[in-house]
Design a protein around this nucleic acid. Structure first.
Length: 271
DNA sequence: ACCCAGGAAATTC
DNA sequence: GAATTTCATGGG
């Protein structure tokens, strides 16, 4: 049993961060803590009064978890700067300001956001769970790793039938093959010119601008990314008239996540 | 039964 | 080239 404790984490909200549509693998316990799998580690995460605790039966890598929850970035400063840009963004930052952009594994972000297209969040979670149960490595009775590119690259489209992702099966296989063969080097996208990185991801069948933007934001920590899904298009047209999404600068991705969560929690704004 | 979902490919105009 | 249709599945 090992435990990590991070103190004075602010601003931060566990539920906002883990259940705002950037990751699909965390589950909430009755006491407000969450459990899930990162890499090959099953962990339980809790947060109370500025203290973030991570517990596991496996060894916990302090740096890796600090990075996963993006604890070294000054979100207070970013919130303050974003709030000056637009009154509705100030409102969204205040409402959803406990969100942090996770550092998820790039391949996991790629596959989960391919699955996300024309889909709803609760069904995405089910498909991702079946993907891990069927093709990930078993850690314990109810936890599996996210399957590797190598594993998925060897499968045929029909092998994915049990995960019930429909027309996306061939996209998943294509993505896994291009990553496993080295045709696409996900790590190289961290430093690449943004539009070149987008173009690189879009070599994969089933990856367009929106999915590429999500992979860059949630998997490669390109915080300038501003994914435009149906929610964000609605939010911009109703709440940010005249904005296209490229107005929020180097931390636009954080602004996007504040607006996305704020909008999903205030559906009545779009009747 | 109906409409929609953190879209993108395929087809048609 | 731009607009429309199709894709597979199931949540609400």
């Amino acid at each position: 049993m090992s435990e990590l404790v991070f103190e004075n984490v602010c601003p931060f909200d566990l539920a906002q961060t883990l259940d705002c549509g950037q990751s699909f693998r965390w589950k909430e316990n009755a006491d407000g803590s969450f459990w899930g799998v990162v890499a090959d580690v099953v962990a339980t995460v809790s947060f109370d009064n500025g203290t973030l605790k991570i517990k596991s039966n496996s060894d916990l890598d302090e740096k890796m978890w600090r990075d996963y929850f993006d604890l070294d970035l000054d979100y207070a400063k970013i919130k303050s700067d974003l709030s000056k840009m637009h009154p509705v963004l100030a409102e969204a930052s205040s409402y959803a300001g406990g969100i942090r952009i996770l550092n998820q594994h790039p391949f996991e972000a790629l596959i989960t956001f391919i699955i996300s297209q024309n889909n709803n969040i609760s069904r995405i979670k089910g498909i991702v769970e079946r993907l891990c149960e069927n093709f990930g490595e078993c850690i314990d009775s109810q936890n599996y790793t996210f399957p590797s590119a190598e594993t998925l690259a060897k499968l045929s489209v029909d092998d994915l039938t049990p995960i019930r992702a429909g027309f996306r099966h061939r996209y998943i296989i294509d993505a896994a093959q291009k990553v496993h063969s080295g045709e696409i080097d996900l790590e190289s996208l961290r430093e690449m010119d943004y539009f070149d990185a987008q173009k690189e991801l879009m070599k994969i069948t089933g990856v367009g601008v929106k999915v590429a933007d999500c992979v860059l934001l949630y998997g490669l920590h390109r915080l300038e990314s501003f994914p435009l899904d149906v929610w964000m298009k609605r939010a911009l047209s109703v709440l940010f008239e005249g904005y296209k999404g490229d107005e929020f600068g180097v931390y636009g991705g954080i602004a996007q996540q504040y607006i996305f969560h704020y909008s999903r929690m205030h559906k009545e704004l779009f009747d």
